[in-house]
Nucleic acid binder design. Sequence first.
DNA 1: CGCAGAAATGACCGGGTGGTCATTCCTATG
DNA 2: CATAGGAATGACCACCCGGTCATTTCTGCG
Lengths: 231, 231
Amino acid sequence: MNDPQAAAGKATGLTFSNLDPQKQRRVLDESYREFAERGYNQASINRIVGRLDIAKGSLFQYFGSKEGLFKHLFRRAVDEIKTPLRAIRDADTAEAFPQRLKRVFAASAAFAKAHPFLWGIYRRMLTQEDFPLRATLLSEVRAEALTFFRELIELGQQQGFVRAELDPATAAFIIEATLDRALTAQDSPVLDAGLGLSSDPHTRQARLDALAEALCQGFSIPEAHKGDCNA
Amino acid sequence: MNDPQAAAGKATGLTFSNLDPQKQRRVLDESYREFAERGYNQASINRIVGRLDIAKGSLFQYFGSKEGLFKHLFRRAVDEIKTPLRAIRDADTAEAFPQRLKRVFAASAAFAKAHPFLWGIYRRMLTQEDFPLRATLLSEVRAEALTFFRELIELGQQQGFVRAELDPATAAFIIEATLDRALTAQDSPVLDAGLGLSSDPHTRQARLDALAEALCQGFSIPEAHKGDCNA
DNA sequence: CGCAGAAATGACCGGGTGGTCATTCCTATG
DNA sequence: CATAGGAATGACCACCCGGTCATTTCTGCG
């Protein structure tokens, strides 16, 4: 009769997937938006069902709880996103360090612009401790990002572009911090502080390039590759 | 009779300042802590008065509203903090660029550790749009920080330590981003990602130095000052 | 048509929130 | 001691929250 195990978990497990796919999308999109705009705690189930014009009970029948909804949403998003992100990462592996760095910067910025809700949730997760799955997900994502940048630096060192005495982990940290800040600034004028990252796409692109260039020149072996960074 | 203007504003204006200074401190400290730990929206007046063991009505008599309390708190904190921060900034102006950069990194980290509540609120403000005064305060603070780093770079260029073709604004952005990330990581293991910034003070200090060094070497004129950065 | 099972509904619940205010308490002064 | 005025109180308010569930509506099949 009573099954305490089932309290937080599957609920029905089927209802939602039986729905008209178009309705599924609408529900997912609207919930997404709410979490991205308000964060986990400030997000309101009432507001979501209000905008969707469905009964509150339905949402709970689909996902069991607020946390269930969020987890479903996020797991799905992460899966959907993994492929394109890996594509960015693994593109042009053979390319020289400076070009690759710039490309990664540009692609990341484009990605953040293209998936504002996912990016919004990620950004909120970074500084708002109360998200479900925060620890798990964040350490996964960040570890992957830092590993990627570290490998990029190491490859640059093998190619002879990057100074050999530079600690890859330290450099990766700096790159990641700069990129993250730049992406954050591009949709938040307050953080931009006059650099121009949040203005029109043209200037934004230029500023982003300048950042990648400055980093690249900073890490480069000066005598060997003068001027290679602004190719 | 009715004065809509007075709704959000001064309330009594005097009650709180008439209080026993010791009680004033207790009230301020506890409120501080609540906002720092939970952010503005999640902070609870009920919890504050509960911990202080005073009546809820009293808090509202002192500050008029939750927003009033927060504003009072923050204005006061900013004032209290300005002096020591300027001191860090203006110390050893004559010192060479690498040493100055390291010193600023170390001092900032120490400051964040020494004022965890203020630092917590600032960090939350960066990514949680719903704080009162957010726009005003944030742009003020960030502008000041970026200006400081820009001037530091420019001075470094005059001293001949920093490459002349480096754009000061871009470099300042990178420095600020790195420093901010490092300070954030030092009390949040999830963000550290194996670098060691959130472990014991010794390693933390070493990692922080490594970051400053890497930045410094990146910006330096290579031939002229080899090795100057790890003085 | 009848009917079964899935899906949808929204009134309702307990609890927490920021905020109010009539009342009581405290203390300093005449 | 009486009293005036500031300080303290906590019951109370309207509102919103996440969550429940008995009931109704829909839909497809025999």
